[in-house]
Design a protein around this nucleic acid. Structure first.
Lengths: 162, 162
DNA sequence: AAAGATTGAACTATCAATCTTA
DNA sequence: TAAGATTGATAGTTCAATCTTT
């Protein structure tokens, strides 16, 4: 822990004014962007963010099939969460659990035709939201810079161990 | 909705390869950064992200006092969520509800000494996490660029109405 | 009628414990 | 013993309904 100069009452943190303003923009982004995307998907396609990316992930794999633990990695979720998510998707008929052919510890999830149809109907709206909210306003260069910054932060998080 | 060329099976979305890679970095950031900060606060200070920012917000206002609806705006939460959050903080003795002096529809939350002590103990660790994970790896220029990008996205979200 | 807030129900996520197979 | 997965309990968020004051 380093020595800093200001305490609560002066500024909310030991960050200078510029850093603080930047950080506040970041927290605002962290609060608003996921919410905006979630609500678009929820209202237009009755899917949560994770559910959408599970369906999308499956549709991009051979036989529309993926292992639950791989889906968890893909969506940055814990395995137990993925199990619950697949429960819900399965009960809506969008995916189906099938045993792994060789390793019987594993479970595969397979996208059904119904699930694929639902995804295909949902995708354009979601992609348009991503375009409108993120890709277009930043432009090619801005997007590239943003990606670089995101990767630097992610790298720090991984290094930190947690 | 615009015409695009590719469907599922080719690429996960109608984004070109560069856009897609950038977008995936953004979603990864959206998944990991909040989790990293939450877990730091949870483990080191037994506080959620929202709870921390409620205490911090109060500590920066006159009389350590804010209206619930203002706290909701500050933390980008719905009012009902804020009411639940204040319930918990109140039950831990960190804040206290007091009636608004003039408008009796309103409720003020006041930071207690106990809550302030808890915040002061928690702040250095949280600030250090913000520094380590975001401020330092981006540097002055990177942080400024990141802020600008965040603001552009937020602006789009607000314009979109929801 | 609108603003501020509260409440309880429904939903989702997280955590720890457990189970099976490798 | 570890990996993959499931399960149930707990905690937190969201949603709709309600209440009071303006």
């Amino acid at each position: 822990m380093e020595e800093r100069t200001k305490g609560h009452g002066d500024a909310p943190q030991w960050l200078n004014a510029k850093e603080l303003a930047a950080w506040q923009s970041v927290t605002l982004l962290l609060a608003r962007l996921p919410t905006a995307l979630e609500s678009q998907l929820r209202h237009d396609a009755q899917l949560s963010y994770v559910e959408y990316y599970v369906l999308a992930g499956l549709s991009d794999h051979p036989d529309w099939t993926m292992q639950l633990s791989d889906l968890a990695v893909l969506t940055n979720s814990e395995l137990s969460r993925m199990s619950h998510v697949v429960d819900r998707l399965e009960s809506r008929g969008f995916v189906q659990r099938v045993p792994h052919p060789t390793d019987r510890r594993c479970t595969n999830a397979v996208l059904t035709d119904k699930g694929h149809k639902h995804l295909v109907a949902a995708a354009p709206g979601h992609v348009e939201a991503v375009r409108n909210l993120v890709v277009d306003p930043l432009g090619d260069d801005g997007l590239e810079a943003f990606q670089a910054a995101a990767l630097r932060i992610i790298d720090r998080i991984e290094r930190a161990g947690r």
